[in-house]
């Protein structure tokens, strides 16, 4: 397996970004981390800084004020980083599509700074915790495919050392 994606195989560190959500999605994410669903048994854990994150969990519509900050957060993460859009809002702005203070869709905002970003979508309003676990599993499968498709890194040829 490609080492680049291998790093995303186990123990995902997730960072949660609320980009103008209604809190339902957010409490469902926290629900995942607490004993009822307990994703920590898979090694998934919430971290306090985007710089430690393998996955950005984005909820909400991405309001105009958040747009720039969201891009900034994405740039701060270590790549490759999977962006998970959680909930109808993050997918396609859901019920708030026509409101005046929402910016572009979350995936557009991320693609603006990184056209090759890996983005996963979890539909639902709010998605059930089971659906989110399912999404993680599916993302892992997808990453496997991506890793298979990517050319194997070739070890760089060692430079000739004179006199050896």
């Amino acid at each position: 397996m490609n080492w680049k994606f291998w790093s995303l195989k186990k123990s995902l560190f997730v960072y949660h970004v609320n980009a103008g959500a209604c809190n339902n999605c957010d409490i469902e994410i926290l629900e995942l981390l607490t004993p009822a669903y307990d994703v920590e048994r898979f090694g998934i854990i919430l971290v306090g800084s985007p710089r430690h994150a393998d996955v950005l969990l984005v909820t909400g519509v991405c309001t105009r004020q958040v747009k720039k900050r969201l891009q900034e957060l994405y740039l701060q993460t270590a790549k490759p980083c999977v962006v998970m859009c959680i909930g109808a809002c993050a997918l396609a702005q859901g019920i708030f599509a026509e409101a005046y203070h929402v910016g572009p869709c979350v995936d557009e905002v991320i693609r603006e700074v990184d056209p090759n970003a890996i983005i996963a979508y979890v539909p639902g309003c709010p998605p059930k915790p089971e659906a989110m676990i399912m999404a993680v599993v599916k993302t892992w499968q997808k990453l496997d495919e991506l890793a298979a498709a990517e050319p194997k890194p070739v070890a760089p040829a060692l430079p000739e050392v004179a006199g050896a």
């Binding site: 309001t63 026509e98 005046y100 203070h101």
Partner: peptide, 19 residues
């Protein structure tokens, strides 16, 4: 409560406001 890039003098709750 409006964003930093919101133009001055545009008030969203006035009549005739367009996005």
């Amino acid at each position: 409560i409006l964003s930093d890039d919101w133009p001055e003098g545009v008030y969203p709750l006035r009549r005739g406001f367009k996005k």
